[in-house]
Computed example of a mutant assay.
Amino acid sequence: MQPEFEVNGTAITEFVLLGLVETPGLRPVIFVIFLFAYLVTVGGNLSILTAILVEPKLHTPMYFFLGNLSVLDIGCITVTVPSMLGRLLSHRRAVPYGACLTQIFFFHLLVGVDCFLLTAMAYDRFLAICRPLTYSTHMSQTVQRILVAVSWACSFSNALTHTVAISTLDFCGPNVINHFYCDLPQLFQLSCSSTQLNELLLFGVGFMMAGTPTVLIFTSYVHVVAAVLRIRSAEGRKKAFSTCGSHLTVVAIFYGSGIFNYMRLGSLKLSDKDKAVGVFNTVINPMLNPIIYSLRNPDVQGALWRVLMGRRSLT
């Protein structure tokens, strides 16, 4: 895909990312903070993934999806943060046109898979609690792999659609993006051609990518809550709710920040609030997920402890 041209024939070959701060004295602080966040996120998610792989007790559908989610979290933060750190080190804020579109493609690919995986995890909880007798049949290894494969296929189609659509827009200048990574709302602001169709596409496809999973997750948990409330034992209800609490927390954070980010396309100027939401989407979410899933989960805590101590489970 080639960049569009200005009226005078000069090609737009790069965009300029202003980053999180424009004060030079604050850039070393930002670099240290985000490098630390990146290392913590990658380390935390790799620890979760390792625990799931080596701990037999965690070889269940729920943790299979959680392992895939950890891979996605590493991918999401890797798409944005290392390039930002590189620009801070080199003091260059320019990003080639092709690199900007590539970042958009991979960011939407990984976030899209995230949407579908969170839905698959809700479906898993629904089957485990509401259909325990047929759980092993309806959530077999084949079904798990099909759900993951379909998630990637749908998300790939979504990411490719948006990337091709944005490549058809004209960019006549200015080329300055008030953000620390490339995304659709920022490029819509810079385009000198109409973005109405692109925005309609984003809303329409976004409804299918986020709205449909949200409805399915909500429906699954309505049935889960109804089933849990029928459990007579208080301890049984507590255990059932604890297995769902972590997932619901991640869903709320993920969809809350995502909706805020993409529902503000009509605003005339992107503000620092958008940067804050961007940090939440690309850094905070992937960093919090391993903490959320291990905080109240004794199985994961025990597996992580055995991994760190170099021990294996006896079961």
Rank of each mutant, 00 (worst) to 15 (best):
P3L: 03
E4V: 03
E4S: 13
F5G: 07
V7F: 07
V7M: 01
T10D: 08
L20A: 10
L20T: 15
P24A: 10
G25V: 12
G25N: 11
F31D: 10
L35M: 09
A37M: 06
Y38K: 01
V40P: 06
T41R: 04
L46H: 14
I48L: 09
I48T: 01
L53G: 00
L58K: 03
H59N: 07
P61E: 06
Y63N: 11
F64G: 08
F64V: 01
G67E: 08
N68W: 13
C76R: 04
T78D: 12
V79D: 05
V81F: 05
M84A: 05
M84H: 10
G86V: 02
G86S: 09
R87V: 00
L89T: 06
L89Q: 12
L89C: 08
R93T: 07
V95L: 11
V95Q: 06
P96E: 08
Y97Q: 09
C100Y: 06
L101R: 07
F107E: 12
V111W: 10
D114W: 12
F116P: 01
Y123A: 13
F126Y: 15
I129Y: 02
R131Y: 07
P132A: 05
T137W: 06
T137N: 07
M139A: 09
Q141C: 02
V143S: 10
I146H: 09
A149R: 04
V150S: 08
S151H: 14
S151G: 11
W152Y: 14
A153T: 13
F156V: 14
F156I: 14
A159I: 02
H162P: 06
T163V: 03
L169V: 04
D170N: 15
F171P: 00
C172W: 03
C172D: 13
P174Q: 01
N175A: 11
V176F: 06
I177F: 00
I177A: 00
N178V: 08
F180W: 10
Y181S: 09
C182W: 04
L184D: 05
L184E: 08
Q186F: 05
L187F: 03
L187P: 02
F188P: 00
Q189W: 00
C192L: 02
S193N: 07
S193V: 03
S194A: 00
Q196L: 14
E199A: 01
L202N: 15
L202R: 07
F207S: 01
L216S: 08
I217C: 01
F218V: 13
F218D: 04
T219C: 15
V225H: 15
A234I: 14
E235F: 09
G236H: 11
K238W: 13
S242I: 07
T249C: 06
V251I: 08
V251L: 02
I253N: 00
Y255N: 14
Y255G: 05
S257G: 12
L268T: 10
D274W: 08
D274V: 04
I284D: 02
N285L: 15
N285H: 08
P286W: 02
S294E: 15
R296Q: 13
R296F: 14
N297S: 03
D299A: 13
D299W: 06
G310Q: 08
S313N: 11
